[in-house]
Write a protein that binds this DNA or RNA. Sequence first.
RNA 1: GCGCUUGUGGUGGAAUUGGUAGACACGCCAGACUUAGGAUCUGGUGCCUUCGGGCGUGUAAGUUCGAGUCUUAUCAGGCGUACCA
Length: 949
Amino acid sequence: MAKEYNFREIEQKWHELWVKNKTYHVTEDPKRQKFYVLNMFPYPSGAGLHVGHPLGYIASDIYARFKRQQGFNVLNPMGYDSYGLPAEQYAIQTGQHPEKTTFQNIDRYREQLDKIGFCFDWDREVRTCAPGYYKWTQWAFQKMYGSFFCNKCQQARPIAELVSHLEVHGTEGLDVAQSEDLTFTAEEWKSWDETRQSEVLMNYRLAFLGETMVNWCPKLGTVLANDEVVEGVSVRGGYPVEQKKMRQWCLRVSAYAQRLLDGLDTIQWSESIKETQRNWIGRSEGTEVQFRIADTDEEFTIFTTRADTMFGVTFMVLAPESELVAKVTTAGQKQEVEAYLTYVKGRTERERQIDHKITGVFSGSYAINPFTGERNPIWISEYVLAGYGTGAIMAVPAHDSRDYAFAKHFGLPIVPLIEGADVSEESYDAKEGIVCNSPAAGKTPYCDLSLNGLTVKEAIAATKKYVSEHGLGRVKVNYRLRDAIFSRQRYWGEPFPVYYRHGIPQMVPEECLPVELPHVESFLPTETGEPPLGNAQVWAWDEASRKIVDKSLIDEKTVFPLELYTMPGFAGSSAYYLRYMDPHNDKALVSREADEYWQNVDLYVGGSEHATGHLIYSRFWNKFLFDLGVSCKEEPFQKLVNQGMIQGRSNFVYRIKDTNTFVSLGLKDQYETTPIHVDVNIVRADVLDVEAFKAWRPEYASAEFILEDGKYVCGWAIEKMSKSMFNVVNPDMIVERYGADTLRLYEMFLGPVEQSKPWDTNGIDGCHRFLKKFWQLFWDKDGNLQVTDGEPTPDNLKTLHKLIKKVTSDIETFSYNTSISAFMVATTELTQQQCRSRQVMEQMVILIAPFAPHIAEELWQVMGHETTVCDAPWPECNEQYLVESTVRLGVQFNGKVKFSMEFPVDAAPQQMVEQVMQAPEAEKYLKNMQVVKTIAVPGRIVNIVVKPV
RNA sequence: GCGCUUGUGGUGGAAUUGGUAGACACGCCAGACUUAGGAUCUGGUGCCUUCGGGCGUGUAAGUUCGAGUCUUAUCAGGCGUACCA
């Protein structure tokens, strides 16, 4: 009897041994070079892992194992992003504490992950909801609170430095990131009381309380970040979101806009993610120009990237939310303006996004164009956004499509400024062409600038220069990136280490951290509308005892109320990669030694859906920690690989209308049928398991079937993997049926890691078959190990080294699917070659170890090794075995090889050519032909190219 | 609209620098062994064909002795983003 490939036994055995031997435990080892592999840690949802989750984990696991075999000291940790909305929503529905369900889910995830055979160092596991972990989230927040951002040195600095500056110079000479451009003197600063000073400092802190427009989701009872809202509804739950002004904790992410942009050039991420981030940051270089409101001394500022169009301005537009609206509205227009503002307020964010209706109202006032002295009417319209630039624009309808539509709608003049631009039908938005229609120099009393004859680019530069020189405005860089709103009105999140003394926020002393999440009875907002933490009884800070005490003790003398908000999801996930380096340290987020050893993540694997969320926030967070000197690298993730999404492949059965009879796919067109989703787990290779189907639902127990070729064939479609479509495939089932090694191989064989693809079990047998063949390579008919110490043949060596070369280069480029193909070919070749050589067989085991670690360990052991295959050094390819022994020489005409002959590789080219030309078979191809040239490609084909005489 | 990205058999997907397109796998066909097969093994499988050959990498042109690969135009799908001045 041949030795059977008993994957269940093998895999279980090795899981136990890996745990027992701490095979995957890593420690800092200065003698070895480090390599840090990281997966985006999962949120442990109640549904458990589906086959899409492990895709990235398997890909990075292969890479981590490969790097380890290459001699690197590899850190490959795993943990859980365990704060979040779903657990809390579930808690509200069922009354179960989110911690309980979260821990249950974590256990289930762990169980599922362990089955797949990852080389995670579980001693380094982190959970964002563990106090020992979120202590450092709170700590970083406090550090941000205690910092401001200096624009000149492009760096975070301690707030005390700013205070000293204010005490001496006021805001004079200040160039810092700020919410509002405040101006005050040192005397004024010193004259203010603590409350006022505290308010003013909020304008500069990196973590600050700010009155901002937020995305308020009434259904979830919380605010959401911009990236948590898509098309006006919440990402979680899909509930409507409205705009509301609230006082919230914010992070001044915008201060780092330029560094976030510049950093992109130093990291190896896909161009599309970098481009997404560039767009999200939205740097735009332009000019701010001041316009005076006619008949007043009031001025306002607009932002434009098209300074060259100053002479084409025909009206001005303000955002409805702009504070200027009240100032410019004349008595005569008051009623109309107010009606319009009411209309705009009634429109949801979603409506504004979906239909771009042209609406607006004239304010009654005019603005003076500083270049022409013309009076331009000031309009108010929702197409101008309060949050970008200055919330006011100069409208140039000839060269901006939105202004054009507005001008056409309200009958405002359109003045073209570029030679040959036809603006009768649409605006000419392109930034190219020759400028015309600007007044000749010195012809207007207002301005001696003439742009005629310049290109648009030159005209922009000239206008910028003119504006700055004449004090009409200044050159300005704007960013679209907004500050992150950092508080949530939820329970299941990190509490803020903040209390309020007479309404002024105070930080809980650093040495008292963490401020632990209190117990509550209800996870809903309180009756007075406070967030759920308002339900906590023991939730006040005693300055005297430096402890959290009962709320009833609040006396506003030494006992004060604690913050009721919690932190958002991205708080805990922003610096977790640093914590893995030193997860049990209670003195620091990460020790200097650990940080300097592991540096940053060499390979980060995760979904691209985090492009504008986590991947921006954690870059920001790390840059801040870099400024603080905590992290020695400015960019957290050196290389990023985005694994594609695994879509579901749904199966359908076809019920004949008004019957309980189901017809197979090929015959369904003969009947009137309704397709019904059927659980993919009772379908194999699109063939329905009829008995399982009958047992699936009571109403199908009596179902009848019209079969084709004795089978019921199901239809299929690619859809999102979801419970409701019955297309969720659980990895446990695959592991149960085929083993973890097959699952690993198959997930990689499915296609390139970075590509989205549907889950489809149709090909899984091929991978399983391969592993069986690979296993059989090592055993004879009687089940004995068949390896000898004999010398390998040249064929054996060629097969082996071809494989080494292919797999080594494939792993570096994540082309695992072609590596697996190469293994299949090599296995077939070695089987045919009757390879028995220990030398070759051992190397085969080493090569397959990253892909199929269980089978590799088992074979490694039966071949007599006592060490783990994980530490077996990766083989080097010896090119000398790959040299081709023959070349083919052919005659090529019209791009086709018509005839060819084989020669030894070292044959003299001239002789080969002669021999081919003289070959009888070649004659008909050479008749009336002339030789154009001969082409030699080493190791490949050598051709004689001919064409008609 | 803008940005990124992808188009190759019945299917998933291969193809170094431009060099025999379709590796490998699924599926399908034929055969072997089986009481049976959702097991195993062997062979075949791009399309058309009058069996000479012809056509083939979304479409159309171009460069080249030679193009899936380079250039230009165009079409289609996917992802992201959106009154950003």
